[in-house]
């Protein structure tokens, strides 16, 4: 069957189809976070004052910095894809490495931020947190789950990019064939978009 089946795959290697599949996956991911946003809005509606107070305790500077980092990484991955489309392989690889570095920097910042909070005794189910009002418990519960889930996506993105980097280095991905990189880029932008909403909803509650 090999020949016949190979023919099938050649035919199935459909650029638009591959992107459509990725977009559908992104749709699904958006609603995964959407579920969390439903909970967030319900609880924020019920506990506006507690959410405000708890939000004051987050490091706004770190949050803003992380926003800039992630936006910049989106720029670098977008240009990396444009570079490979133009046949500038080296530039594409450098930009991809920059993206990964920015992703890791984001995670390091996040880790630092979590670390400081945990040091202050604020983490799910901690005695310090349980002593506070219910709205604040909820705020930090949501904060840890949502930023944690987002961080996990960043981590997955960095791993995917390292695979892409190898594929570019090996020449599997090139000017003629770049869909996997483009799809990985789409995923990364999705992660960026989620953060674009997480940032004001956690750090900037007035």
């Amino acid at each position: 069957m090999d020949e016949a089946k190979e023919a099938v795959f050649e035919e199935a290697r459909d650029y638009t189809g591959a992107k459509l599949g990725m977009w559908l996956f992104i749709l699904s991911e958006l609603l995964l976070f959407g579920g969390m946003f439903i909970l967030y809005s319900g609880y924020r509606y019920k506990n506006p004052a507690d959410f405000h107070h708890a939000s004051r305790e987050l490091e706004v500077v770190l949050g803003t910095l992380n926003t800039i980092i992630l936006l910049t990484s989106s720029l670098s991955v977008a240009t990396s894809i444009a570079a490979i489309q133009k046949g500038q392989r080296k530039l594409s690889m450098v930009l991809l490495m920059a993206t990964m570095a920015l992703g890791l920097l984001f995670l390091a910042n996040k880790g630092f931020e979590w670390g400081t909070k945990i040091e202050h005794g604020i983490y799910p189910n901690s005695p310090t947190l349980l002593a506070r009002s219910k709205g604040e418990i909820l705020f930090f519960g949501l904060y840890y789950v949502m930023t944690g889930l987002h961080g996990l996506h960043v981590l997955v993105g960095v791993c995917v990019f390292s695979v892409m980097l190898i594929l570019i280095a090996k020449g599997t991905l090139n000017q003629m064939r770049f869909v996997p990189l483009e799809n990985a880029g789409l995923y990364w932008h999705l992660v960026d978009i989620i953060w674009i909403f997480l940032y004001p909803l956690f750090y900037l509650i007035t």
Partner: peptide, 25 residues
């Protein structure tokens, strides 16, 4: 399937989070 399955996905994850970390949601 694409549009609503992720909502139960996150809900089930939250049950696990509740059981292991006591998140409280």
């Amino acid at each position: 399937q694409i549009l609503v399955t992720p909502v139960i996905g996150i809900t089930l994850i939250l049950i696990i989070m509740e059981r292991f970390f006591g998140v409280g949601v």
